[in-house]
């Protein structure tokens, strides 16, 4: 007679179901997670609106009119009000503002870095074009930049 000996039982946990659940959780979180992209911002002081108050500016602000000529990032038309040369791109605007600023390199410049700059987008100007212009002014290191009420296209740009 053959007597079979039972093997010593191994106390192994069955991990299969746990691994199934863990993988399901992993897939869920991988699909559901939305990584937030880093955001940056331009600061703009917003004066409170007080009825009847008039603010006297030391300097006549430099008015820059912005209009969208298309949906592309560079399809922007810029016009500086006053007897200034026309600028075609935001880079030219930065260059114009830099070259006319009073600093250690341009002692004969016209504007200080605190000179008020008023950006007047048209009603239908795209937000990206408005901010591209804002950025162009900020790149020239002007600090007093304001977004003005929208103008209609016919008022300023032909």
């Amino acid at each position: 007679m053959i007597i079979k000996r039972r093997k010593a039982g191994s106390m192994g946990l069955n991990l299969t179901s746990m691994i199934d659940v863990v993988f399901l959780l992993l897939i869920y979180f991988m699909v559901a997670t939305e990584f937030k992209t880093a955001e940056e911002s331009f600061p703009m002081d917003l004066p409170a609106r007080d009825a009847g108050q008039t603010i006297m500016l030391d300097n006549e602000p430099l008015v820059i009119v912005v209009e969208s000529a298309g949906d592309g990032q560079r399809d922007v038309r810029i016009q500086i009000e006053g007897p200034w040369d026309s600028v075609a791109t935001v880079e030219e605007l930065t260059q114009f503002l830099r070259s006319n600023k009073i600093d250690e390199f341009h002692v004969t410049g016209l504007f200080t870095d605190a000179h008020p700059v008023l950006i007047q987008p048209t009603e239908n100007a795209r937000w990206e074009h408005t901010l591209a212009t804002y950025n162009a002014v900020a790149r020239a290191k002007y600090t007093n930049i304001t977004l003005d009420a929208p103008v209609t296209k016919l008022d300023v740009l032909q």
Partner: peptide, 14 residues
């Protein structure tokens, strides 16, 4: 709002 809040115009940081 009547006070003078500081406005931040948010852009894509990438």
């Amino acid at each position: 709002v009547g006070t003078t809040p500081r406005l931040q115009l948010v852009i894509d940081g990438e």
